[in-house]
Design a protein around this nucleic acid. Structure first.
Lengths: 357, 357
DNA sequence: ATATTCATCGAAAACGTTTTCGTGTTAACA
DNA sequence: TGTTAACACGAAAACGTTTTCGATGAATAT
């Protein structure tokens, strides 16, 4: 086993100084062609690579960005990661991921761990528990330390940073209006509790669409699911709730669900109750994941473009990081970072499949 | 904005030396109670946290492990990541992920980037292109540099390292035998090309199960899909192939597919052809993902326990990393790392759902 | 001949830690 | 009073880089 070779070792071996080696390898013209040749050849032979850690320490930046998300076994989030990784890699950055698992405490632990010099900036989506508690001090604390943050999807006004969101409201309006033009008379909604901002916004979009089409909203047609318990493992509960919902509202002929799991589960229940889709009931979901694509019937859905969200977030963050660099040589005393934060809205798009007419 | 405070700044402020501050904060008894109190209070007030990068440089280890996988928008892989992150975090490590995107070149680039001091060890699954090329020099090179690797799922004998795999062969046997005891007479197989080791092993398991039950394998009942092109975006091609397959083999009453996408797509085609599942045809898939769980009918499948794979991989890697530590104080000259590599086999399990009787 | 400019290289600082080894002071001992 | 031990702290090295600033010698110019 040959350990990684360092500048010092090369210097010793070739009987020159460390600085000479460093300069030779960066092809500095301070060094004569002869010695450059010699050093470069030696370095190549021993496969020299500069130590990232040492560089990070010297340059005071790590060239890696921290991703902090609630869950990774999740189509939307992993898509976002893919987007982030793509542009990060292209622009010379690495990504290090932390999982909050929807927990406030784990979110904080993870942040502090990474903020301890491991990363240059964060891209994150807030955990459910944090949203519930409405305690955002850790975000503001890290921003205060000079570490920029970009929030996506689950964002919050109380933190001053760049944000990338999908237009949940408008997406919901589009979906609901599609059901309306498709002649649905009793359009139901399956949504989450209100403290999840995206759920709330989608609910508002649903209501707005009804209103602007002069349809009176019927509270009975709205089913709010409490997903405090991880609903992935409680499908039966979900199915039962939906079954009850359908039975007490037999007139439902259109359904908008705020995520694809609710949508496909609803389709399953509907079929069980003898309803056929889309003939008896048309269904539209949110989030274009594997389920939507491969369900039978395949699901018409509102696509969030997760990868695009990731890419934009990464670009926003890296832009800011590199802008901070150029601020350095300035001689202004109180060199506060710019406060003009951007909120990018990614347009949603309805992908029509078999669950609507 | 208050930048992160350092030992030096504390020292200056309190008019002591850096070493005193360092010792005081680690509660060394070399320092008097008085000064310790003073320094600790000050540090707490200014929320001092040691700089990870500096520590990494000093200790020559980063306490982060690199994950290198072909794809992240993938239920199995993200589950493995979750497992890795869990134990990594518990044992004080961070994870940094790189995506090869099934490309040989990107795999190498990513490895070299991370091997440059950013990580202590790798957990990885080999990209398709690399498997095809059978070029594993980059793995051996990084191992040679003293960076241990743990491979999972897609592993290869040519590299000496710890490995964690699922028993693809046995899983396939189990699945096929389940179809046999369920009275299927013509059991078909939908699989991948042979260069993917897991596909090959699952195919072998299928054949073995038939053989040991005295059923002659019929080559016509085996459909090999070429997924060189990302099949996610080519479902129509897939559907057509399967449809053709079913039409030319109308007697098929049992189907084993080597992944869940093939399985649910097959179910979809079957339904289109007027076959009902499980009455006319029973189906078993591989990988227990969202699709299996929420398809209609829900899919009986061979679970790979991705999270467990991740956890075991992480434990294996960290165990080895910490063992390397204890080797250090040894005065043996040629301190080669242990060559006794472990190959862990995670048992598969059949999860019965609606697609079998 | 002296002064000046290049060309080529090395020493040292800096990034933020931890740790080893001194060193000075004070108190206890002979 | 002189020796010793304990105590409290600081200086410096080390991890691996890059970069600034000199330093040396040779070559050129005057």
């Amino acid at each position: 086993m040959k350990r990684k070779i360092t500048l010092k070792q090369i210097a010793k071996e070739l009987d020159v100084s460390v600085s000479t080696v460093s300069k030779a390898l960066s092809d500095s013209k301070e060094i004569s062609e002869d010695t450059k040749q010699k050093i470069q050849a030696f370095a190549k032979l021993y496969n020299y690579r500069p130590n990232n850690i040492a560089l990070s320490l010297k340059n005071r930046k790590t060239k890696t960005i921290g991703i902090l998300i609630p869950e990774i076994v999740h189509h939307f989030f992993s898509t976002v990661i893919r987007g982030i990784e793509r542009v990060a890699n292209r622009r010379g950055y690495n990504v290090i991921v932390g999982l909050s698992n929807e927990s406030f405490t784990k979110e904080i632990i993870n942040m502090e761990m990474l903020a301890g010099g491991s990363i240059d900036g964060f891209i994150l989506s807030i955990s459910k528990e944090t949203m519930l508690k409405q305690d955002y001090h850790h975000f503001n604390a890290t921003i205060d330390q000079g570490i920029p943050i970009v929030m996506f999807d689950r964002v919050v006004d109380e933190v001053d940073c760049d944000k990338v969101i999908v237009d949940d409201f408008k997406g919901a309006v589009k979906a609901t209006e599609k059901l309306i033009v498709n002649k649905c008379k009793n359009i139901a909604l399956i949504t989450t509790m209100d403290y999840i901002s995206v759920g709330r916004l989608r609910t508002q979009g649903y209501l707005e669409a009804l209103k602007s089409n002069n349809i009176e909203a019927n509270p009975n047609l709205i089913l709010k699911i409490d997903d405090t318990l991880d609903v992935e493992n409680h499908i039966e509960v979900l199915e039962n709730e939906i079954e009850q919902f359908f039975k007490t509202n037999p007139k439902i002929d259109g359904l908008f669900a705020v995520n694809e799991l609710y949508a496909v589960t609803a389709m399953k229940v509907a079929r069980k109750l003898g309803l056929s889709i889309p003939e008896d009931m048309q269904v539209i979901g949110f989030t274009d994941g594997v389920l939507s694509k491969h369900a039978t019937p395949s699901l018409t859905t509102v696509s969030q473009h997760g990868q695009k969200i990731g890419e934009q977030s990464a670009n926003l963050l890296i832009d800011r990081l590199e802008a901070m660099d150029y601020d350095k040589p300035s001689y202004l005393a109180n060199n506060e970072p710019k406060k003009d934060f951007i909120k990018l809205v990614i347009e949603t798009e309805i992908i029509e499949r078999e669950s609507t007419k």
